[in-house]
Computed example of a mutant assay.
Amino acid sequence: MRARHAFPLRRRLAVAGVLGLGLGTTLAACGSSSDDDAGADGGSLRVTTLGLCNEVVYWAQEKGLFADHGVDVELVKSTGGAAALTALQSGDIDLAFANPFSTMIAIDQGLDLKWIATAYETTSVEADAANAMVVAKDAGITDAAGLNGKTIGVNEVGGINQIASSQWMKLKGGDPSSVKFVALPFNELASAVASGKVAAAQVPAQNVDPELGLVSLGDPYVVAGEGSNLVFAGYVATGKEAKDKEKELKAFQDALIETNEAFNDPANDDERFKLASAQCKQDAAVLKTLPENIYEARVDTGALERMGEILVGQDRLDDPPSPEDFVPSYVTTK
């Protein structure tokens, strides 16, 4: 496990869209490697992106790191994990940006999927929280039990945020089976709590807006991890592609590992936030102030095992797939 001091506290940008199995189905090509000769001596990959501010693929592409590792990457805009996994199965793309919970559930349902690289991990320290369970300040709700029988907003019913929120309630003395989860767009969750439409919502930490009168009961991911990091999102291939494109997929992960080194060097902050600003049309100065998830391309198999156990504990799976079965041997792990 990496030493905690290697990552400054603010390097935990909450991903503005979490990848599940119930989102839209739109895909559109949005770019290719910045080096026209990329992949001339190697292969190519079509990889989905949500266009989020902090997707490390943009730095790797802009800096020519994919080309340096001998792979040509074309980024394909997706509306979410469902679209990506659908395109993956149809052969329209080679790598889908997805989350481990949805991936393991899909594997259990019969899909042949392989985890190739991680994009982000969650923190295990509440002070570094990148996510939050928010309630109205004047609602009189001070803990998980106070949400029993109420309605909680998440970005997607059955997705990673609902699973983490349910685990948070269970471990904090609440009863997730008594809660009604409803799906709302990310940009509507905080206002839904403020207006009383829902009693609480699982949101990125930066959405804890004092002007809306919201307070956080804690980061569900920190609690669900029980002192350890969890894997938040990453890249998934089909079993066939994982075998047929081993060289390209290994090169893809290696390029992301190199990107992580750049991201975690404060000397690159101005440049990386400027690039992020251009990608997601948000002010770079504001982006610098937001909490961040941990950038990590190596695959934490222990975290994947813990997440499988969470799915079993919530009766979502009887026998979760083992990382030994869905993480190829050539993938760099930690």
Rank of each mutant, 00 (worst) to 15 (best):
K243I: 02
A82D: 03
G17T: 08
V182N: 05
R298V: 10
Q89S: 07
A6N: 11
R298D: 01
D254H: 07
Q279G: 00
A67S: 09
G80F: 02
K170D: 11
L111K: 10
Q314D: 12
P266R: 15
Q109D: 10
G39Y: 05
S216H: 07
G158Y: 02
P323S: 04
Q109G: 13
T122Y: 10
Q89K: 09
T123N: 04
E248T: 01
A205K: 09
N161M: 14
I257H: 10
A3F: 04
R10T: 06
F181G: 09
L287T: 10
Y295D: 13
Q253Y: 05
L311H: 06
G110P: 10
R46A: 13
K77M: 12
G70N: 05
P185C: 04
D35K: 14
V134E: 03
F181A: 09
K172N: 15
P328G: 01
T49D: 07
T238F: 10
S166L: 00
L290T: 11
L23M: 02
A262Q: 12
A200E: 02
G70P: 01
D128T: 03
R11D: 08
N207F: 14
D92N: 05
A136F: 03
L171Y: 03
G64V: 13
G159L: 05
S124K: 13
P328D: 05
A255L: 09
S34M: 10
K180Q: 15
L23E: 11
Q282M: 05
P204V: 12
K77N: 02
V154S: 04
T301C: 03
S216V: 06
A164N: 14
L9C: 07
L311M: 14
D37C: 08
A14P: 10
T79E: 01
E188V: 07
A199W: 06
Y295P: 06
A276I: 00
G22K: 09
G302I: 08
D325F: 08
T49V: 14
V286Y: 01
G22Y: 07
T79R: 00
G51N: 04
K150P: 00
A190S: 10
V57F: 00
D175N: 13
I116A: 03
K247T: 07
A201S: 08
A183Q: 09
P8L: 15
F7H: 14
